[in-house]
């Protein structure tokens, strides 16, 4: 396998749920790829489908009413529709996952060490004591103080930040090529978040893993990601390199998102550029562009569904003319100041 091939290619991924009120789409035609050693940030608010996208990659959507279609290829191998046994050979070994809430992500009745050992021994034929020794090393690598004793502790005996470190240590135990992190710092305090983000960045360098980092916090993305996807109502509405996307966002939703975050330095705006209204309910998705009802620049073309387009790897799903976007963005900010 050539090493420059993308690690993960997601194409036209759709996740929907059958409910009493009909089929509800959660993810509608998401496509993206992740290169080796790349950190991809996925940004979106609740209901944007970002978590469902991640769960679908690893086949972790467990609802009998879920329908997942499209394609997820990992190192050229199709993951969707894979048998459980074949999937288990990849889960935890080549693709590992970190979840949002470290308080509930670990089984409360087993020690940290037992849970890491379990994962190592599921994928490699090593002795219990060798696996345990590696657990201690891993806990040490993620910065858990006194790892020799922490390995025998139960999850509730550790603080939130320490638990998240233990979860990360477990995820790294088989040296995965891809680490999927779903809001790994949302439940943590800022100073702990800073520690964990630093850790994730360091691990990419040390272990060479690619990372998909899902977050609602643009600041977190700016901190660690190489490339960013912005999701809204189950679709990717903008995609680009971190620098491009943070300096010159192209989609009006991204503009609103940036305007909603109070700045940490410089003058304080009198008002924030909030986005009016609230995200659409999945069961009542508007026709055409899903952001249309909240968009200041809505026009006739928006009755159709825009597709991702653009140049230089910076693409957005919007009908506004490319060359006037930054001017429009400034008018939006100016309107609030006035």
């Amino acid at each position: 396998m050539p090493t420059d091939a993308p690690l993960l290619v997601v194409e036209n991924l759709c996740v929907s749920f059958r409910t009493e009120g009909g089929v509800v789409p959660a993810v509608s035609g998401v496509s993206f790829s992740v290169e080796q050693r790349e950190i991809v940030g996925v940004v979106g608010e609740s209901g944007s489908g970002k978590s469902q996208t991640l769960l679908a990659i690893l086949g972790l959507i467990n609802s009998p009413n879920a329908v997942v279609t499209g394609s997820v290829r990992f190192l050229g191998k199709e993951l969707l529709g894979l048998k459980r046994r074949a999937l288990d050979a990849i889960r935890g070994r080549q693709i590992a996952m970190i979840f949002q809430d470290p308080m509930t992500a670990l089984t409360p009745v087993h020690t940290i060490g037992d849970q890491i050992v379990e994962q190592i021994r599921a994928h490699e034929s090593v002795s219990r004591s060798a696996a345990r020794k590696r657990s201690v090393e891993l806990l040490d690598a993620v910065g858990l103080p006194s790892p020799e004793s922490a390995v025998d502790r139960y999850p509730h005996q550790l603080s939130g930040g320490m638990r998240q470190r233990a979860v990360i240590a477990m995820a790294l135990s088989c040296n995965p090529a891809l680490l999927i992190a779903d809001e790994p710092t949302t439940a943590l305090d800022v100073t702990v978040q800073a520690q964990i983000l630093e850790l994730i960045g360091r691990l990419r360098d040390a272990f060479g893993s690619a990372v998909i980092l899902v977050t609602h916090d643009l600041g977190v993305v700016a901190e660690v990601a190489d490339r960013v996807l912005v999701m809204y109502a189950g679709r990717v509405v903008e995609e680009g390199g971190k620098g491009q996307l943070l300096r010159e966002p192209l989609h009006p939703y991204a503009w609103g998102l940036f305007g909603s975050i109070p700045p940490m330095h410089g003058p304080r705006p009198a008002r924030l550029t909030a986005i009016p209204g609230s995200p659409p309910k999945l069961s009542q998705m508007p026709h055409g562009c899903a952001f249309g009802p909240r968009c200041t620049f809505r026009h006739e073309a928006c009755a159709a569904q825009p597709s991702l387009g653009g140049t230089g790897g910076h693409r957005s799903a919007c009908f506004l003319p490319q060359d006037s976007r930054q001017d429009l963005r400034r008018t939006l900010a100016g309107r609030v100041e006035a």
């Binding site: 800022v190 100073t191 978040q193 800073a194 983000l197 916090d217 643009l218 600041g219 977190v220 993305v221 700016a222 901190e223 971190k242 620098g243 943070l246 300096r247 940036f258 975050i261 940490m264 330095h265």
Partner: peptide
């Protein structure tokens, strides 16, 4: 420390 820990959505 608290102040510097806040991630800022700004690359420049």
């Amino acid at each position: 420390a608290l102040r510097s820990a806040v991630p800022v959505p700004d690359v420049d």
